[in-house]
């Protein structure tokens, strides 16, 4: 087991390095002097030679690229992404300020979506190729086809403008959460429903299910006791993988509802040209994905020993 974990850990190192290189180079792919941008962004004045020089020294922009990268990386792994270009505080503070809102939106959506996805997926699988199943499939196709920003605006139009039932935007009480969660869940749930359905269908075609059926067990029990139990592992894996959406999975929803989360932070920072924040968010979201993957893989191996020795 330990060997497996060690091997997986080693495997992710190049990926993490790759993510860091890409995030770091984001700042350096545009022509021109970052120091000038910083002066302009921070002081809103035309950069003078001495100001640019001062910033260049202060930020260490006069050092060789490799040194800068190593310095950036060594700080980034400790959660230090330097100072924002537009605001007088560390990038990490900006991110931490927005994290709770994103987390709230994500976990609510996550919980609701999973519940419904399981329900719809099971129904769909039991009644395969019947009307309910077609309905579920159409529903999930719509879920991935309808742009969330459009759906969000339509919900705002119905519930906030016409019916005046719910607030159209903002962060606060439970009533603020309803529309964004509804909007996001629609697509979130769609993908998950499809996955639950296909996992169950696969499990249903396995030998042990055929045996169970042959024993004359009622279909309900076959599906819930036998098929579902076996399909549960890939389903749980898949669900846990979506935790990596936590950081910026809901950009469009956050923008439509002015939700003060990390998604809107990303968009705002792009507009404000606050590239260290953009850089940090790209880095963190990539790393989070890798780490969640790793954790899920290891847990998977704990549950199912075949994987450990499999390759």
């Amino acid at each position: 087991m330990l060997r497996y974990i060690a091997r997986r850990l080693l495997q992710i190192v190049p990926t993490l390095l790759g993510i860091s290189i890409i995030s770091f180079s984001l700042l350096y792919i545009f022509p021109g002097d970052p120091a000038e941008f910083i002066v302009e962004a921070r002081y809103a004045v035309e950069p003078t030679q001495e100001m640019v020089k001062k910033i260049r020294m202060e930020m260490g922009l006069d050092r060789p690229m490799l040194v800068q990268y190593l310095d950036w990386l060594s700080k980034a792994v400790r959660g230090d992404f330097g100072k924002s270009w537009t605001e007088d505080k560390p990038v990490m503070d900006l991110i931490l300020e927005r994290l709770p809102a994103s987390a709230q939106l994500f976990f609510t959506t996550f919980a609701i979506s999973i519940a419904f996805a399981m329900l719809l997926g099971i129904i769909s699988a039991i009644y395969k190729d019947r009307a309910v199943d077609h309905f579920c499939r159409i529903f999930s196709l719509l879920g991935i086809s309808i742009p969330s920003f459009w759906l969000g605006l339509i919900l705002i139009w119905i519930f906030s403008v016409q019916l005046r039932l719910l607030p159209a935007f903002g962060y606060g009480g439970i009533e603020h959460l309803i529309l964004p969660v509804l909007t996001w869940s629609f697509s979130f749930m769609a993908i998950k429903t499809r996955f639950v359905r296909s996992c169950l269908l696969e499990a249903l075609s396995q030998d042990y299910v055929i045996t169970a059926r042959a024993k004359g067990l009622p279909e309900r029990i076959v599906v819930l006791r036998h098929a579902l139990r076996n399909a549960l592992i890939p389903i749980i894996t898949y669900f846990s993988l979506s935790i990596s959406h936590l950081i910026v999975g809901s950009i469009m929803v956050e923008v439509v509802f002015s939700w003060p989360g990390l998604g809107s932070l990303l968009v705002e920072s792009v507009f404000k040209r606050d590239f260290p924040v953009v850089q940090a968010l790209v880095f963190i979201s990539g790393v989070l994905f890798v780490i969640v993957n790793l954790v899920v893989d290891i847990l998977y191996a704990v549950i199912d020993p075949r994987i450990r020795y499999g390759d």
């Binding site: 999975g249 990303l266 953009v278 850089q279 979201s285």
Partner: peptide
């Protein structure tokens, strides 16, 4: 694959 697509797109378009 690790970096969420839209995040990367927004960052790239912004910088371009």
């Amino acid at each position: 694959l690790a970096i969420p697509e839209l995040v990367f797109n927004i960052a790239l378009v912004g910088i371009f």
